[in-house]
Design a protein around this nucleic acid. Structure first.
Length: 423
RNA sequence: AGAGGAGUGGCAGAGUGGUCGAAUGCGGCGGUCUUGAAAACCGUUGUACCGCAAGGUACCGGGGGUUCGAAUCCCUCCUCCUCUGCCA
């Protein structure tokens, strides 16, 4: 969430940013935030004053008691009754203001970076780079949902039987392809200086709030009510929360973590056309990279992460393009997001396989993720993350783009991981 | 899962109702001394909020309560340790 001080000090910039996102009633909400914060400050100052008075009376009573002057102590005791009532009242007022303030701040998305284009929907995203040649499959192109059937490598019906729609079962070479991709992605990330972590895939409420999935995306996550835990929609949640309530030292930065996890998304209400086969699932595998950086270096880190992900796509020999998301299409918590899309030659469409974002201090403010700078002052760090990569659509694209009469050829870089070169 | 014990500052560890934000030791930082280093000695060393500042307030696992006053008493939740049970 945004810092109230940012809203105060850079009101116009914040307002302009929210307008770029088409955030409604921005001005009135920002004004409300400041008013609530003023209220909060006023009631706290008052409370603190009265509490100070009450504290000093208590000390006095303590001294009188020690001297054995019980009667005098009794007399001034009565002075505190009124104070206590007032303090209680102000505390309630303060708590209410704080709650309202927080609730309001939760509704405000991050401020877009200046380079983010204005726009309402995915159509306004800006293509910043394209690479590779789109294969021409001619008349014989077969979509991946048919390929997986004819080669018997991914079984949706079996998944329905044991779990439900959107939970595929990978079999034989299909399963081995999953494992190969995961290992390939992890090895690449290790070579690029990321430290591997294996986090829990169930997280508590605090973690959900820390990275911003809660409160607004509650319905997107599977929830275990018995223990109040959430199945993670992405490894971003547990990995970034590793650093919740942490004060790092400047030398620790940048922190670079990578983790493989399954991801779970309810995708409530988002089924329809274009979601056949592997295009959208309730459970899928993803390798995620996370960075925690000094505020001065976060955009450099974002570019690094973007080229790192592009490097993976090049090694997999997939045609791809990079989009800079527009204000209207960007995630709630992000300041700047690049989406990487691969071309799926039988579906004849671009599929998002990675999303690389800089959250600046939006997450770290919620997470209380800070570092001590050179002047020994604590300040909020910047958090970033990106998929590197999400598997299903990569698989879809590999299958479709490399199909041929004699089978599906695997990208060279995977051969040693797979133990075969063709399906 | 049951029984018992315990959670205090970066770490170790004292403190069981009142000048306790918290002794002491270690570590860290600054300094004296030294050719340099070590040792010794002196000083300093948590976080957040309000305030221009002085200063004030809050925090001793989380939350709630008792009290004029809570690290200390009560309730509740969480976590860890030991024993018993169960189990990949």
């Amino acid at each position: 969430m945004l810092l109230v001080n940012t809203i105060r000090d850079q009101f116009d910039r914040v307002l302009a940013g929210l307008e770029k996102r088409n955030f409604p009633e921005a001005k009135s909400i920002l004004t409300q935030v400041i008013a609530l914060d003023d209220q909060r400050k006023a009631s706290q100052t008052q409370r603190d004053q009265l509490q100070a008075e009450s504290n000093s009376i208590s000390k006095e009573i303590g001294q009188l008691m020690r001297l054995g002057k019980k009667e005098e102590a009794e007399i001034i005791k009565s002075k505190t009754t009124e104070l206590k009532l007032q303090v209680k009242e102000l505390e309630d007022k303060n708590a209410t203001a704080e709650e309202e303030l927080k609730a309001l701040l939760y509704t405000i998305p991050n401020i877009p970076h200046f380079s983010v284009p204005a726009g309402k929907s995915a159509e306004d995203n800006e293509v910043v780079f394209e690479h590779g040649v789109i294969p021409d499959l001619g008349e014989n192109k077969v979509p991946h949902w048919e390929l997986i059937k004819s080669y018997d490598i991914i079984d949706f019906d079996l998944g329905v039987k044991i779990a439900g729609a959107g939970f595929p079962v990978y079999k034989g070479k299909g399963a081995r392809l999953q494992r190969a991709l995961i290992n390939f992605f992890l090895d690449e990330a290790l070579a690029a200086g990321f430290m591997e972590v294996q986090p829990p895939i169930l997280v508590n409420e605090d973690s959900g709030f820390g990275t911003g999935q809660l409160p607004d995306k509650e319905g997107q996550m599977y929830h275990d009510a018995a223990d109040n835990l959430y199945l993670i929609p992405t490894a971003e949640v547990p990995i970034t929360n590793l650093y919740r309530d942490v004060i790092l030292s400047e030398e620790d930065l940048p922190i670079k973590n990578v983790g493989y996890t399954p991801c779970f998304r309810r995708e409530a209400g988002s089924w329809g056309a274009h979601v056949r086969g592997l295009n959208r699932l309730h459970q899928f595998d993803k390798v995620e990279i996370v960075q925690i950086t000094h505020p001065d270096h976060s955009y450099r880190a974002l570019e690094e992460m973007s080229s790192y992900v592009q490097g993976l796509l090049k090694k997999l020999e997939l045609p791809y393009r990079v989009l800079r998301l527009c204000g209207g299409d960007m995630g709630f918590t992000s300041a700047l997001t690049y989406d990487m899309e691969v071309y799926s030659a039988a579906q004849e469409r671009w599929l998002e396989v990675s999303s690389v974002s800089n959250f600046e201090t939006y997450q770290s403010n919620r997470l209380k993720l800070r570092f001590k700078d050179g002047d020994k002052k604590t300040q909020l760090a910047h958090t970033l993350n990106g998929s590197a990569l999400a598997l299903p659509r990569i698989v879809a694209s590999i299958l479709e783009n490399n199909q041929s009469p004699d089978g599906i050829h695997m990208p060279k870089v995977l051969h040693s991981y797979l133990g075969f070169d063709k399906i």
